[in-house]
Design a protein around this nucleic acid. Structure first.
Lengths: 208, 208
DNA sequence: TCAAAATGTGACCATGCGGCCAAAAACCAG
DNA sequence: CTGGTTTTTGGCCGCATGGTCACATTTTGA
């Protein structure tokens, strides 16, 4: 019998454990995207996954832990995909353009993830009012952009500008457009937005 | 005794009714901002407002109706404030800059509103899966910007560009930066972002 | 001034939720 | 095969929630 408080991961998670966790997280993303956060009880998620409710309790410490796992999963998937594509480019200007293009590509092909992502923003500071955790979520994205920008400035590809400040604006523009698209898919042309953003920030960064 | 189903607003709402509704909505905004959506029960809100729980049920058809009222209130406040300031400017370029500046000013001075706003995004389609309502929420903002842009193009202040497309980008940038600031206030410099956005879109729109 | 309407109260209720557990089932090493 | 371990099941429980109601209080208007 697994003790109630997990023994600090004494052994590696079994194959079944990893698979089940993954399955539950993915089902939960779909369920939340479809019915909203409040409409997605553990029972609902279990039913969608075709398992008993107890299984979720067995693999996750509680609802909060499941939500945390969902957040991590969504963020990791997106980050991995984007950075993979960025890494294939050499020049800073290409990296920046690819960052934007990959972001929109991923958003466009993973709508449920971002619908759920949106539903979960409100739950971010639930556990202990830890507003601070949220910073941890966003900082890597801004950091990635800022790194590209700084590198471009170092090798004179880019002109001088405050990299950190601009990275906030770039990430903001991407997320803000995503938000509009989540709330009103028919009203937003993701492809056009992606194109314009690339042109806009290319113009804004490239040396004369 | 008021009938359960409201008689289609046969008479104008009384003074007390209007005041109470306003009080409840404002208290609810604060409560949700402080404790999160799931942590803000009707009982909590009532307590914060110093009234009995039944009063909320008396003035609102249910929790969903209250949330809807909150959304309308937040949106109306913001929209009114911004458009008031925009209206004071004559030239299109000034209107655009003022739109951006006013947006950030309002965001910066009404944090609780936007924390709650963020918490409520997930509840937008709760009632009937009406994803469509969301469009109604965002469209006015984009419309306002597009109107400014079009006017500027007509009188040659602005160069030619797809106004609708750019308005999506402008509103997106504002909201995306707001989002980062909500999640991580210490990590974002609103003033700098406002300045950069104004410069960026001035550059992007103004005729040569 | 006073009855009727509007508003507020606090207790009450049904419901659904997250969490728990004892027993069954599946899995696996020896 | 077998005994121990992991995983799953399905039902149960306590609790908090949104909503309702009979009654108290205040406001209104003639």
């Amino acid at each position: 019998m697994r003790p109630k408080t997990r023994p600090l991961r004494s052994t590696r998670p079994s194959f079944i454990e990893a698979a089940r966790r993954q399955q539950i997280v993915e089902t939960a993303i779909a369920t939340i995207a479809a019915r909203g956060l409040e409409g997605a009880s553990l029972a609902d998620i279990a039913q969608d996954a075709g398992i008993s409710k107890g299984v979720i309790s067995y693999h996750f410490a509680g609802r909060a832990a499941l939500i945390q796992a969902i957040l991590d999963e969504i963020l990791a998937q997106s980050h991995t995909y984007i950075m993979d594509r960025v890494a294939r480019r050499r020049r800073a200007a290409d990296k920046l353009a690819e960052y934007i293009r990959a972001s929109f590509d991923f958003i466009g092909t993973h709508r449920p993830n971002f619908v759920t992502w949106l539903n979960l923003w409100g739950s971010l500071r639930s556990p202990e009012q830890r507003t601070r955790y949220n910073a941890r979520l966003y900082e890597p994205c801004r950091m990635a952009i800022a790194t590209i920008l700084s590198a471009g400035q170092r090798n004179k590809e880019f002109k001088p500008f405050p990299a950190r400040e601009l990275s906030v604006v770039i990430q903001g523009a991407i997320d803000g457009i995503m938000l509009q698209w989540i709330l009103d898919p028919a009203g937003i042309d993701l492809r056009a937005a992606s194109r314009r953003l690339r042109a806009l920030f290319d113009w804004q960064t490239r040396a004369a």
